[in-house]
Computed example of a mutant assay.
Amino acid sequence: MNFKEDELQHYTLIEIEQILHQHERSLMDFNDMPKPDLKVLKELGNSLWRQEQQYDVLKEGEEHHKLFNQLNPEQQNVYKAVLESVYNNMGQLFFLYGAGGTGKKFVYKTIISKLRSEKRIVLPVASSGIAALLLPGGRTDHSRFKIPLIVTEDSICEIKKGTMLAELLIKTDLIIWDEAPMSHRHTFEALDRTLRDLLSTEDSSASEKPFG
């Protein structure tokens, strides 16, 4: 495969690398070529990460504005506490309790739209398929985190380091788990062990933190 110099100038380094990859080549094979940021290349090659970056920022911002103006004082307290943790990288855990119809999902949707309007990654999951469908971009907990169907006290999620899902979880700003009390405690313990292991690759102290 040959490129003329005047043809190359119409491509970015990222695009050239992607074209070369299709032919099992890389920019690393050419000593005189500038090299793109490997971290950027890794992100672009992660389809799961790209999927979470495809939300319409303006649309999410408009949705957030509409929802936020309807929050009551108690819901605003939850909203502010969660965002404070996200923005300051505090890694806090919150348990939102309330009877059906008290607006828990409304709070979730408001937080989700806020973070997605800022290109942040939030992963909403639920313990049942029906509940997951009611969350924007929601998935079941077993589907998203590869939790074994049969979990024991020693189970871990089927997520290997360096995979697209592992890299996505490392970059995730917030996980929202709806209907959490419906799940067996072993599912949370499996995710806890998995996230501690994955996140400790970039921060050794994560292995001692709940859910990393």
Results as ranks from 00 to 15, higher is better:
12 T>E: 06
14 I>Y: 05
16 I>Q: 00
21 H>A: 09
25 R>F: 03
26 S>P: 00
26 S>L: 03
28 M>K: 15
31 N>L: 09
37 D>W: 10
38 L>M: 12
42 K>R: 15
45 G>P: 00
45 G>H: 09
46 N>Y: 02
47 S>D: 15
65 H>V: 04
66 K>S: 12
66 K>Y: 02
67 L>T: 12
70 Q>K: 11
75 Q>S: 02
78 V>K: 04
79 Y>E: 11
79 Y>P: 02
86 V>A: 08
87 Y>H: 14
87 Y>Q: 13
90 M>F: 08
98 G>K: 08
100 G>D: 08
101 G>E: 11
103 G>P: 06
108 Y>L: 03
109 K>Y: 01
110 T>Y: 01
110 T>N: 11
112 I>F: 02
115 L>T: 12
121 I>S: 03
121 I>W: 04
127 S>D: 05
128 S>E: 10
130 I>G: 14
141 D>A: 15
141 D>K: 08
145 F>S: 07
150 I>L: 13
150 I>G: 05
151 V>Y: 08
153 E>K: 14
155 S>A: 07
156 I>D: 00
158 E>P: 05
160 K>N: 12
161 K>L: 05
161 K>V: 01
164 M>S: 13
167 E>S: 13
171 K>D: 07
177 W>L: 02
178 D>C: 04
181 P>M: 10
183 S>K: 03
189 E>Y: 09
191 L>F: 13
193 R>D: 01
194 T>F: 11
196 R>A: 01
201 T>P: 02
212 G>H: 01
